[in-house]
Amino acid sequence: MATDDEGVRVIVQDCADRCRRMALHHNVNGRVKPSTAVPINEDFSYATKRLEPLTEICGSNSGETFRILTEYAASFRIEAIKVTEKGATELGAIKRMCDKNWWMRRLRKIFNQAYQQTAIELNLVHKYKQIYASDLTVKKRQQQRAYNEQMLSSMSVINDAGQRFSLKELSDLNVSNPAVRKAELMVRMRGFEELSKEHGHQGIFITITCPSKYHAVYSKSGQPNPKYQHLTPYQANQYLCGLWSRIRAQWNRKDIKPYGFRVSEPQHDGTPHWHILLFVEPQHIDELKQVVSHYALEEDGDEKCAAQNRCDFKLIDPEKGSATGYIAKYVSKNIDGLGLDVGVYGENPITAAQRVDAWASCWCIRQFQQIGGASVSVWRELRRLN
């Protein structure tokens, strides 16, 4: 396994070259040996048209070539490119699989996730050692951010008025900037809360947690969990996504239309759980809770303490504090940690936010989601007009 980006680049170049050789060889000779039997360094000197553009070579037999290259990519656990009438064509997919940049994006993700999962399997990721994400994953994320900032700072654009700005300056004006991102989320949540007060809706805060088999260690001791089935945080988040889709489908059937926000964050061992702030008509509160409890306990609901730990509900009491203030700490923890005295497990909140960012980037987890309401694009355009 490659230990750094330079090692990954070597593998990437080999993969892209091999795909191109297989595509050329198959179309020139009509047949190709199984991909596992083609040596990486075979020169295919007998393929006289090896330098002919892929557009001309692959068009005659793109279906079979696409199948062969897809099987080769699958050996690296890379999903097949979806071919559709309005999207990627078979020829387009073939050309992508012959491109080293296409391979780089996918293999870098696979290697990074393999590093992180190995650290989890070795019992290194928990609150007593390396909280939320491994030190290696955090270091690689910091290096990636530093590289991105350096690249943006080195490039500039000039507008029609002759003003010059670096891409870094422009990037800091949108939600790529953590401060802007947090402010926008808080304003949108505050808007939902004010809307709920106007209509007399009840706020409720829900926490949904994964079954025990997704947790590598115990929450209190940090010792290995014997029920752990070597599932990744990505798989855990996919479980939560599936669970959430069933919950929303059932709400829709019952004509329950809640609105609010969802925050996905890691527990100390990197397993995701969701915090959901919703507003709904008061008469639907009990039915809303019943649906969440039913689906949250549908899988392994008979395990010890599942009823207490799998889902939790807290009604928002305006006399004790605002709903936006209740979720503010979760937003801050997942963005920059500013405004917090200490993390959930007693850790430094700034460092914790950096580790959470590395965790979300590694496992491709969407941290924030609006539920109900107009799309954020409409909201932003209306804000510009105001």
Rank of each mutant, 00 (worst) to 15 (best):
A133K: 01
S171A: 14
F76K: 04
T48M: 12
K49H: 14
L136C: 01
W102M: 08
V175H: 02
N148L: 15
C98I: 05
R50H: 11
E169H: 07
T65I: 04
G63I: 12
S156A: 14
K129M: 07
L54E: 10
L152Y: 02
M155C: 14
T89W: 01
N112S: 08
A74I: 01
R77H: 14
Y147C: 11
F66G: 00
Y147L: 15
L51D: 14
Q150D: 13
E42K: 12
K109C: 09
R105P: 00
T65P: 04
N174A: 05
F111Y: 13
N159S: 03
G59M: 10
S176W: 09
V83F: 01
F76S: 01
G87D: 04
L152Q: 08
I57D: 02
N112M: 04
I57C: 11
N148G: 03
N174T: 10
R106V: 06
Q163M: 11
A93F: 02
Q116S: 13
Y46V: 09
T89F: 03
V157D: 05
F76A: 00
L173V: 05
A74L: 12
Y128R: 06
E85G: 11
D43P: 14
S153M: 12
L51Y: 13
A88I: 12
I78Y: 06
I94P: 00
W103D: 05
Y72P: 00
N159F: 01
